[in-house]
Structure formats: C-alpha cells, structure tokens
Design a protein around this nucleic acid. Structure first.
Length: 483
RNA sequence: GCCGAGGUGGCAGAGUGGCUAUGCGUCAGCCUGCAGAGCUGAUCUAUCAGGGUUCAAAUCCCUGCCUCGGCUCCA
C-alpha cells in the first residue's frame, strides 16, 4: 500500500488515484531563461523517481511538465541579449533535455509551453471575471483573493497576514494588496498577445492551472514542485482552478525539499551557484543521481564535492557487485545443462535474502518514496550476495537470474546502474576478435605469472589498463572487464 | 512580525514509543607475488540542553538555545 505525504494536510495518507490504475501527475518545470541548476536537478529527479515507482507499481502514469517561457525574467534576459524571448526559450529547452537525459530522467508524456496556450488562458481569465472572482484595471486583470475562502489552506497563511505582507505602494491599481495578476498589461518594448483587455501577457500562475486542466482534466492526482512554490504559486493555482470548476483541484500536493551548497543557499551572489552541466563535467551523472536519491525527497540536501566523492565510491561498490553477479550468472548458464537442477545451499541462503530485499525496498518506497531506506536495503542485500558469492559456492542460474531481474527492476525505479547491467549481460556473449586477443594476452600473462615473471605480467596488466581493460586476479583465476 | 522545516556517531543520512538502519572514513584481520575487487571484525548502545508523561523516549508533551527556508523572482 502506497502512502504519500500531502502538503495540504501535512500528513501522510494512503494513495488512491481518481481513476483506478491511472495517475495524473503535473510537475512545475523551470523558467527557461538560463541553464538548469542543481536545484532543478533535485526537484526533477525526485519527481522522476516518484513517477518511476508509480509505474513500477503498475500505474499508467500521465506525466506533464511545463516550461515557462514568458515572464519578467525571460523578458529581462532577452532584452539584455537582444534576442526574442522565443529564441531564448528554445535554446534553454534544448539544454534542458540534454541535461536531464544525461541524468536518466524519463521524458514526460507532454511538455506544454506557456506561450502556446495563450488563448486557453484568456478564456479561463474571462470565466473568472464572469464568476466575479477577477476584475480588469488599465488593461491588467487581477484575482480577487479575499473572495475565495480557503485561499491560504495550502500554505497555512491567513487572509489578515497576507494583507499586511502585501503592502507595496506601486500596486495601487489593485483593489486589495493581496490580489495577484492573471493578465499583465503590456509595457513599452515587451512581447505581447492580444486580449479582450488589450495587449499584454499572462501572469505566471494561470499557466499551470490552464495547462494542467487541458492535459489532465479538472482534477489531478499529484501536483509537484519545489517547496518554495507552495506560496504563492500553488496557492494561486488552487484558487484559480477551484473557482473555475468548483471541484477539488489536486488530490496530493507533493513538494521537494531544498538543496543547499556547503550549507548555504545556492545563489549567484554567494558564488556557490552550479549548473547541471558544470557538475556533470566533473562527476558522472549517475553519481549525481545516486547522491540525490541518497536523501529523502522532502529533506533538505546539502551539496558539496566531498558528498559527491562519497557517492562515487558508493556507486562503484554497487557496480562491482553487479559485475560479480552477472559474471556468475554467465558462468552458471555456461555450465548448467538444460535439465532441472537442484537448489544448492547457497540458493537456500539467497532466496530469503532476496525476499527480505523485496519487502524492505518496496516497503520503503511505499512509505512516501523513502529512497534512503530503499538504498540501505539494497546495500544489505548486495553485501549478503557478495559474501555468498565470495565463498565460491555453487548458485544455480535460476536463482541468479531472479536476483538479476529484481535488481534490474529496482535500478529502473531509482534510475541507477541499468546501463551497467545491460553492458554486463551482453559481455562475453559475442566474442569478437578483440576480445579473443584480450583473452590470449591474459593466457600469456598467466604463463608469465607461473614462471614468476612479475615484470612482464605487470606490464601486460598496466598496458591493457591504459587501453581500457581491467584485469583482476581472483582465487578462481583472472577476470577482465572493460573500464 | 507571520508561516514552515530541522538539530542523530569523525562525516553523510534513516528511524517517530521497546528490537543492529545504511553508507563513507579510520583501524585490524582474511585473500593476494604485487595491485584490484571482495570478505570478516572493531570504531558504533550516537540521538542540542533542561524538565515532564511512561514499565519503557532519538521518538510523545513543556521550556530554553541554535540552524535553515518561505513571505508575490525562485525547483
């Protein structure tokens, strides 16, 4: 049974989709005025894992993630660079896909773009005006916050506090200071769209309400985003959507915790601002991903080179275990006949261990996607597996295959080590000339070693390593693998 | 001021009433020509401080101290 923490109720609750077997999920994507940074990675990877686990559970997930391509930041940056906002947007959308493909993030079902939905937004704004929840002034349209009761239910804010907070002198055209813009009248030199209220552009909050309703319907199961979006963005989304439909907009509000860098908030002024591409130039994307799933998605997470170095070591341990497993599996397949084989004592140790892994891994993920515990259970299992395999006991191919396919499924959920497994599965199956030659060299090295010609055998090993082939001497003879 | 999160071993990071989290680091040992990988064990009865509830608290309650985030730019 899957349990999810809901920001709205501030507690965990059993997950029940609107429609059996299906999940409608919407995640707030970035404003595409600059390269994606580590904070985006934190959020996007968190929701990617959630999506993958839902799919693992057998749900058909419709996953929508938007791109905001029109707002103050877009306009400012475009003006600085003297390019149209659309050009800026397409450049960074392309970058976005490059970055997140690297991080093994699965593509969303649809990536709607704000400026491609202007007419729908205008329609929704008009309906809000008709219902009396919005009003136009000087070509702009504002939402009447005071009229929507329950406005602050998501963020825990009260109307009274909001009014005090929102005292900004220049917004005097609004009826009340807490009202927010649905449509902004054009200023000199800004991009614009025609509307019943004159030339202008949509406000930020309306885009997500409109696009999620267009692609997912009036009620959605999961709406995600960073903790910083709770107020005002998501608060305003709820107001817009629920006034419009009269129905509950989002069933589970899910927010990821923030990322700090060396214990400080990541910001350009502090000089600790990192883009994804800066980090993946230094560390393997898979290392970054392991680092991110090592803490719970709602916890704050602190980024530093030291933490990534640790993740790198942990990842290589996982890879090594997988290499050992896959090699044993290839061996077992090679030696076993097609006839049924009796389980060995090692099998009898591994089956309950695998069962325990399944219970713990899936139990952890069922409990609000607790990836650190899921990883802990994986570590425990791999230790057990290594220790059994290190004793060189006979394990049947059936057991090893079962382990392999379970690990494969969990790797798919976390977005880790799948490529490694695939590479290992095919290794040694099609023996090319190159592989034959490597084996020949290893054979020759073995005869050197038998003659205690350490100089020559070490030279073969180190030269092959330079060429990307790693030789490891094990109790059962040398093994080799590509670097 | 208002809203929220949190303070756990050298470090990272779970646990939310009783039961070894896990990992990294360090140290010792096994294996080994060396290296690598792996294994075994130790560090490891750690939980901000002070009170309270309870047979039992890292976990619940109170008080205090401290850290971090949000408050119409933000994942």
């Amino acid at each position: 049974m899957l349990i999810i923490y809901n920001t709205l109720t501030r507690r965990k609750a059993k997950f029940k989709p609107i429609e059996a077997g299906k999940v409608r999920m919407y995640v707030c994507g970035p404003t595409v005025y600059d390269s994606s940074h580590l904070g985006h990675a934190r959020s996007i990877v968190a929701f990617d894992v959630i999506r993958r686990y839902l799919e693992f559970k057998g749900y058909n997930v419709r996953y929508i993630q938007n791109f905001t391509d029109i707002d103050d930041k877009m306009i400012k940056r475009a003006q600085e660079q003297s390019v149209p906002t659309a050009e800026l947007a397409s450049k960074y959308i392309k970058e976005y896909f490059d970055d997140f493909d690297q991080l093994f993030v699965k593509r969303a079902t649809i990536y709607p773009i704000a400026t491609e939905h202007i007419s729908e937004m205008i329609e929704v704004i008009q309906q809000l005006i008709e219902k009396g929840y919005a009003y136009d002034v000087n070509g702009s349209v504002y939402f009447r916050v005071a009229k929507f009761k329950g406005y602050g239910k998501l963020s825990g804010r009260r109307q009274k506090d909001l009014q005090q907070e929102a005292e900004t002198p220049e917004s005097s055209e609004k009826e009340r200071p807490e009202d927010f813009a649905l449509w902004k009248a054009m200023k000199q030199g800004e991009p614009f769209w025609k509307s019943p209220w004159g030339k202008g552009r949509p406000g930020w909050h309306i885009e997500c309400s409109v696009m999620s309703m267009k692609y997912l319907g009036t009620a959605i199961d999961i709406h995600g985003g960073g903790l910083d979006l709770v107020f005002p963005h998501h608060t305003n989304e709820v107001a817009q959507a629920e006034v419009l439909t009269g129905k509950r907009f989002v069933h589970y509000w899910v927010h990821n915790g923030f990322l700090t860098v060396n214990k400080e908030k990541m910001s350009k002024s502090l000089g600790n601002f990192f883009t994804i591409r800066e980090i993946t130039a230094k560390f393997d994307p898979e290392v970054v991903r392991l680092f991110l799933v090592s803490s719970h998605y709602r916890s704050p997470v602190d980024f530093s080179d030291q933490h990534l170095e640790e993740a790198k070591i942990r990842l290589s341990r996982i890879h090594n275990s997988i290499d050992i497993l896959q090699r044993k599996l290839r061996e077992a397949r090679g030696t076993e006949s097609l006839a049924p084989v009796k389980p060995t004592t090692a099998d009898e140790v591994l089956w309950p261990a695998l069962e325990k892994l399944r219970e713990e891994f899936e139990g952890a993920m069922d409990d609000d996607f607790n990836t650190p515990i899921a990883l802990a259970s994986l570590n425990q299992f791999l230790s057990r597996l290594n220790s059994v395999l290190a004793e060189n006991e006979v394990v049947t191919a059936g057991t090893l295959m079962e382990i392999s396919s379970t690990l494969d499924a969990y790797g798919e959920v976390l977005g880790l080590y799948r490529q490694r497994m695939k590479a290992q599965e095919t290794a040694g199956l099609d023996s090319s000339v190159v592989e034959g030659m490597i084996e020949l060299l290893i054979e020759m090295r073995e005869s050197m070693r038998a003659r205690k010609d350490w100089a020559t055998s070490d030279r073969i090993r180190s030269r092959l390593q330079e060429l990307g082939v790693i030789i490891e001497d094990s109790p059962t003879g040398p093994i080799w693998k590509w670097k």
